[in-house]
Write a protein that binds this DNA or RNA. Structure first.
Length: 303
DNA sequence: CGCCAGGTGCTGA
DNA sequence: TCAGCACATGGC
């Protein structure tokens, strides 16, 4: 089985830290896809083991997705400026910011606003089932020969951990062709028109995702904010998780709680908090945010 | 059941 | 810039 060297990495922490919504754990394996190519991965010590089935992914693709090419030590050292963040780093060292597809990240975080993670995952799954491409799970022991059954375009034995078929994340065009009514039927609620408008903006070329990869954080954020349903927080999530803008610092309800640990001031505006955090943590503020976010949520969950 | 969720857009000071 | 409010829906 192929193996990648993965020092300073925690697969479990990375995949459960609320930055990605489509990975599923089964046994020691995590099942998911990178740009629509399905695989499973697991970690043993500082090794990342993966299996591709028939997916055309290179070791470099996987290394890049999990950000294993990033030297984490200096990053963590640069944000380790006080006892709060220090504690989070000690607890969750190895948490990395994934390099996710920018469109999938944008659509996902439009749906994530004022919502809970379980439901976000369900909404995204429904969206994929309705508008993505089906990937049938190839049975490893199935008998070959005779007429090949009408086979779907895509197959992969790691398409799903459990049963039926898995689905790729839909292209913007597919959602753009839909309607608000159909999207509401998926349970997207008031986010349905936001997602539709955003998908149309991308499909029409008014939000050129590929070109935006080359612009700086400020310009990128400005472009993202032009989308309906994208405010400061969503734009920062997309910049951080989908565009490698590590200075982005998304401020949500959990960051407000983190802020109370620091200042005891009960009400600080999200804008002020954003400025304060970026000044405090610097060019890798986004990493600080993700460690603080995971730390306080984990603490709340375990009591 | 009531409260909460990785907020945003809009309105009116 | 800021505060206050409506917005859909399901998890717990």
């Amino acid at each position: 089985m192929p193996v990648l060297k993965a020092p300073d990495f925690s697969l479990q922490t990375t995949l459960t830290s609320g930055q990605t919504f489509r990975w599923h754990a089964q046994g020691s394996w995590w099942y998911g896809n990178i740009d629509g190519r399905f695989l499973r991965v697991r970690q043993e010590g500082d090794q990342l083991i993966y299996e591709l089935g028939e997916s055309r992914l290179s070791a470099g693709d996987i290394r890049r997705y999990f950000a294993l090419d990033l030297d984490l030590g200096p990053v963590l050292k640069s944000i380790d400026v006080d006892p709060q963040i220090h504690q989070a780093i000690e607890r969750y060292r190895g948490l990395r910011i994934l390099r996710q597809d920018s469109w999938e990240t944008l659509a996902s975080f439009v749906l994530a606003s004022f919502n809970n993670i379980k439901r976000i995952e369900g909404m995204i799954e429904g969206l994929c089932q309705s508008y993505g491409d089906a990937v049938e799970r190839r049975q490893p022991g199935s008998v070959q020969g005779g007429q090949a059954p009408a086979r779907p375009a895509l197959r992969n034995c790691f398409a799903l951990a459990g049963g039926a078929a898995a689905f790729t994340f839909p292209k913007p065009q597919r959602i753009a062709e839909s309607s608000e009514r159909k999207l509401r039927q998926l349970g997207l609620g008031y986010r349905a028109p936001y997602l539709l408008a955003t998908a149309r903006r991308v499909a029409d070329g008014n939000l050129p995702m590929k070109q935006l990869r080359r612009v700086n954080y400020e310009k990128l954020k400005g472009a993202l904010l032009a989308c309906e349903g994208v405010g400061d927080k969503v734009a920062d999530c997309v910049a951080l998780f989908g565009f490698e803008k590590y200075e982005a610092f998304p401020v949500d309800i959990w960051m407000e709680r983190v802020a109370r640990r620091y200042t005891r001031v009960h009400s600080i505006s999200r804008k002020r908090l954003h400025v304060w955090a970026r000044n405090r943590f610097g060019q890798y503020a986004g990493y600080a945010q993700q460690y603080l976010y995971h730390d306080i949520r984990s603490e709340r969950a375990s009591g």
